[in-house]
Design a protein around this nucleic acid. Structure first.
Lengths: 258, 258
DNA sequence: CCCGGGTGTTGATCCAGATCAAATGATTCC
DNA sequence: GGAATCATTTGATCTGGATCAACACCCGGG
């Protein structure tokens, strides 16, 4: 269990010197996406920004009263919970620009815990205020629906990538997913850090940590990637994408190139 | 592939003699949940109701323009798509009172297909109208958020029940899920029909159909259930629940009863 | 600089469940 | 009603990945 000593985010002092939404380079995937300048102005006073938290500190914990939706500003957040038999289950990893907390609306309290895997910072959007504002700004309402829809799609994808896929496919899917998501936020698609441990990747993918390690080594032998500790470099993205589908490199030519 | 000849739902004639939301016994889990009588009145004119469709007919298909969210009125709907390697992937089974289509908001077209597994009927809620109405009725907006939140939670649960669970646990989880959902709609929790094939259960759970069959047989031998073809009777619900967690029947006493 | 614990790698063995195979039981369609 | 097709069950075999085990590596602290 990776719960460190918790200086809860809620208790830390707001940091008012942090960039506004209008100047945030992540606003393209967060709530302001699709809003015009005026609407972003109306959203602004609602946002609460905090100083960064460190590895092991929690954003919220299972059972806390649900109040905020959080957008990751920097770092990585692991969202997890304990199963009935006290095993850690990982719901997801959230990267900069991604939004967490939507799964707790129904229950009224957080149904999972969120912990920083590295020094990370956030913006908090009080959900009840967000709801009110949604009724005034159609574009914002639509954006919230879109973000939640995306979350459903992502979870569905994840679920299906656990079905009928072997270890190599699962790991490839995981790497491609990270690559896409980093790229989408303006980071490198080819080179990034695996901020979570092998054990955590294993739990997330339904594999033993040894299998994760072996699979990464094997992919390195095959010149698809270079892995060194937490750093990953993807050398052959197309080949890695083919691994995901289970189609060999020879299947593409079946569709005539001309 | 189970796509039958398709008389698309959209093309079938509205059936205006079907019960209104206000008198629908499923309204407790659908959009009207939490709305007062006045608000349900406002929702009413927006709903489009159709004659039932038959097994194999589609509600919508991947790529169709996203227009409606559908509530299942009767029957079972399988939501699925084809993977890159043309294998069927099953996103979920939807029972009476359950709502489908939320995963297609973001894309603007349906990202999956929905097919009836038995004679089934629906109500359609045009999403753009629903969005508008949400801005007038706070309780409706909140309910839409709740329904989507539930969908995220459900998908998360499903994802996690694929991780680190063995075949017996997966099948138990699946049966309990159906049991709970039927009960929630006022049907029997103990006795119901498995409207999907063993193959479909297998795809959904990430198991070979033979494993599904064997596991059900094994559970019958253990007097947990009786399975006859599509009919299931659960004899020992608590024991089945214990199977889900992987905890033996002896673990509960570890927590002092007094 | 060395020590210690956490994290990652690699090797060896074993088993749950996939796959292959065949028989039987349903259901549909003339 | 009967043939044809499909769904399900059950058996036999094989294998990918879990598990057990040992070792290497890295990093922080004294």
């Amino acid at each position: 269990m990776s719960i460190g000593c918790a200086l809860e985010l809620q208790k830390s002092a707001p940091a008012r010197d942090i960039a506004l939404c209008s100047s945030c380079r992540l606003s393209g995937t967060c709530f302001p996406q699709g809003l015009d300048t005026d609407d972003v102005q109306k959203l602004e006073p609602l946002v609460r920004r905090f100083r960064p938290i460190h590895r092991g500190e929690h954003v919220f914990r299972t059972g806390d009263k649900f109040q905020n939706i959080y957008a990751v500003r920097s770092g990585t957040v692991k969202v997890y919970r304990l199963s009935a038999d006290f095993e850690e289950q990982i719901i997801g990893f959230y990267l900069p620009g991604e939004v967490l907390g939507f799964n707790s609306i129904e229950q009224g309290e957080y149904v999972c815990s969120a912990v920083a895997l590295e020094t990370s910072s956030f913006c908090a959007f009080p959900f009840s205020l967000l709801e009110e504002l949604c009724r005034c700004i159609p574009a914002l309402q639509h954006q919230v629906f879109r973000l939640m829809s995306k979350e459903i799609v992502f979870s569905n994808e994840m679920m299906m990538s656990h079905c009928g896929k072997d270890a190599r496919q699962k790991v490839a899917i995981f790497l491609i997913s990270l690559s896409n998501r980093y790229q989408h936020q303006g980071y490198s698609a080819r080179e990034f850090r695996l901020t979570m441990s092998r054990r955590e990747v294993g739990i997330y993918l339904g594999l033993a940590l040894e299998t994760v390690s072996r699979t990464l080594s094997r992919m390195q032998e095959d010149n698809l990637i270079t892995v060194d500790r937490k750093s990953v470099i993807i050398h052959d993205l197309p080949a890695l994408q083919q691994v995901c589908t289970g189609l060999g490199p020879d299947v593409i030519p079946l569709i005539p190139v001309n």
